[in-house]
Simulated assay, not measured.
Amino acid sequence: MTRHAALLLLLASTSFSADAAPIPEVVEAMLRDASADELATVEKLAKRAAPDSAKEIAALAKEIRTTRAEAKAERIASQGFFDGWAGEGAIGGSLSSGNTDELGVSASLNLDKRTTRWEHDIRLSFDYLETNGTVRRERIYSGYTGRFDLSGDAFFSFGLLSFERDRFSGIEYRFTESLGLGYRLADSDDLSWTVEGGPALRQTGFTDQEDENRLDLLGRTDVEWKPSSTVTLSQGAGFVLSTGNSSLYSKSAATAKLAGNLSARMSFDVLHETDPPDGRESTDTITRASLVYGF
């Protein structure tokens, strides 16, 4: 519980006079001091603490949101290309010894920037697993997605460039380029949900068979939900459909704030190839426990 919520619950136990329509000063101060994540909760508790000022509290909360949105829009409009980036770095690992000596490392870096019309999204990740001196997994991924709003905040066009390498799945390299359209089903501080799709070019170099160049169909969706100010749940899923080998993936994660910018995350990935090279499994799964630093 935040200090704002605790104090407001204390105030709620104290009755205000029936003619006290103006917002109590301490309640107004808490509303103005609340962060974007806290404002909805503080507003709700403020109405309980001062029910005779409920309409005034709702109006003030709306004014605060509008003022902050306008200030954010002005700040974004004046940014240069290298300004306004936010992101997170995550690292996780495992180490065991005895009957089985195992070393596992995972690391990722995500960068995001959103302007009045553009959204830039950069993803880098690395997974490595060694068991008894033998490498079992070594996967590298890097990708960029640019989105341009076409109609308000709902429809957008996108462009995607990505590179991946997973030799233990038989892929020496794979480049993917895609252009398409998308739609924002939800776009708020608490919930974001996008769907997008379009044609995709893929150039794949296999470790033990002929290389492929194909025109495929790409589709994906990403959902992020914040049920509270300290917990974030996310789910991403997508596919690249092909007349040959098709690829499907699912990425699920739960992130909880620990202190400041530091969080803990549990995630589960599923990677599936419908027609993998001979001798390879069609499905890989990766479970991670990571520390995440946001900036």
Rank of each mutant, 00 (worst) to 15 (best):
A259E: 09
S106Y: 01
D222W: 02
S192M: 10
L201F: 14
E138A: 07
T116I: 06
A36I: 07
S108F: 01
E273H: 06
S247R: 02
M1L: 12
D278N: 08
N245H: 00
S108A: 15
L241F: 05
A49H: 00
S169P: 04
S252Q: 08
R165G: 04
T134K: 10
N213S: 12
R123S: 13
A259D: 08
A90H: 01
L233A: 08
D269S: 07
T100N: 10
S97V: 07
T287S: 11
S97G: 12
G236C: 08
E43A: 05
Q235T: 05
D101Q: 12
S125H: 01
A69L: 11
Y293V: 14
D127R: 13
D52M: 09
E196C: 04
S142T: 08
R48H: 10
T255D: 10
S106Q: 14
T131A: 08
L258W: 15
L39M: 04
F163N: 07
G104D: 10
G87C: 08
E281G: 15
T287L: 05
G104M: 04
F158K: 06
E164G: 07
L179V: 10
E164I: 10
S290I: 06
R3T: 13
L185M: 13
S96L: 04
K251D: 15
A12V: 04
P24K: 10
F163H: 14
I64T: 02
V231L: 15
F175A: 03
R123Y: 01
I171G: 01
E172A: 13
A86E: 06
G205L: 05
L191H: 07
D166H: 03
D52F: 03
A12W: 02
E102N: 09
Y173N: 10
G279H: 12
G197D: 07
E63C: 03
I140F: 07
H120F: 03
D52Y: 03
W118G: 06
L217T: 05
N261K: 10
L217R: 01
R139E: 10
T131R: 14
T134C: 00
A200R: 01
G238P: 03
D187I: 02
T14G: 08
T131M: 07
G205W: 02
E138N: 13
I286P: 00
D284M: 07
G198T: 13
A58H: 08
Q209M: 11
A200E: 01
S125W: 00
D149Q: 09
H4P: 05
R136H: 04
F158M: 11
P227C: 09
S94Y: 12
R265V: 02
N110R: 15
T41A: 06
S15D: 06
S282E: 12
A5W: 00
E210L: 12
N132W: 00
I64Q: 02
E38G: 03
A186T: 13
D121W: 01
S229A: 13
T230Y: 14
S234A: 15
N132L: 00
T230Q: 11
L160E: 09
F148R: 14
R3G: 04
F206D: 02
V195L: 12
Y141V: 12
S178C: 15
V135M: 13
S13E: 14
S228K: 08
